[in-house]
């Protein structure tokens, strides 16, 4: 069935992205260092934003209220990104930019790649809302869930480990 074909294909892409992130995680783990640069409450808010958005995007799929829930998801996603951009900017201004050490390079690469994926997802949602075509929604939902799952490992191994 054509729908199964596209969903499997997209799922395979997601699986390949898992290995992509695994390589970034491996690099982060190997080049680890430590800097006291993270704020627990800040990351907590980011995590909540993404987790709740993972819930709302699922609702966009199972209910028929795509517009409502997609707009909610998009706002939460943009909020997450805003916080991340703020964090990155401050780190760079305070001398903790990616060119300062291997540890920071790995941090920016791993968290930045995740952020770029979130941005792509936001763009996707925006296009869906503007064109009002939702036939790709199931794949977007898969993508968004996957990004939240990656974030679980980022907040654990990058932020929580970095704060302990």
């Amino acid at each position: 069935m054509p729908t199964d074909k596209t969903t499997l294909g997209f799922w395979l892409y997601i699986m390949s992205d898992c290995v992509l992130f695994a390589s970034l995680f491996a690099t982060f783990a190997v080049l680890r260092g430590s800097e006291d640069i993270f704020s627990l409450p800040f990351v907590f808010v980011q995590t909540l934003a993404l987790l709740i958005s993972s819930f709302t995007v699922g609702l966009a799929f199972v209910t028929k209220k795509q517009n409502t829930f997609l707009i909610l998801t998009l706002l939460l996603g943009l909020g997450f990104l805003g916080l991340e951009v703020y964090e990155f900017k401050n780190l760079m201004l305070e001398g903790f930019g990616p060119s300062h050490s291997a540890y920071l390079s790995s941090f920016f690469a791993l968290v930045g790649t995740h952020g770029l994926h979130v941005a792509a997802g936001c763009l996707w949602m925006l296009v869906m809302l503007v064109t009002q075509r939702f036939y790709q929604l199931q794949r977007l939902v898969l993508f968004w869930h996957f990004l939240d799952i990656i974030w679980i490992f980022i907040f654990t191994f990058v932020y929580l480990f970095g704060i302990i």
């Binding site: 290995v19 390589s23 990616p98 060119s99 050490s101 390079s105 690469a109």
Partner: peptide, 25 residues
């Protein structure tokens, strides 16, 4: 292909980041 090529993508990207943006992988 699906499970190995992403590793190449990352590795080349990290090298590019080193060369172009002064990262330190």
């Amino acid at each position: 292909v699906i499970f190995a090529f992403p590793i190449l993508t990352v590795t080349l990207a990290l090298l590019a980041l080193d060369r172009t943006l002064g990262f330190h992988f």
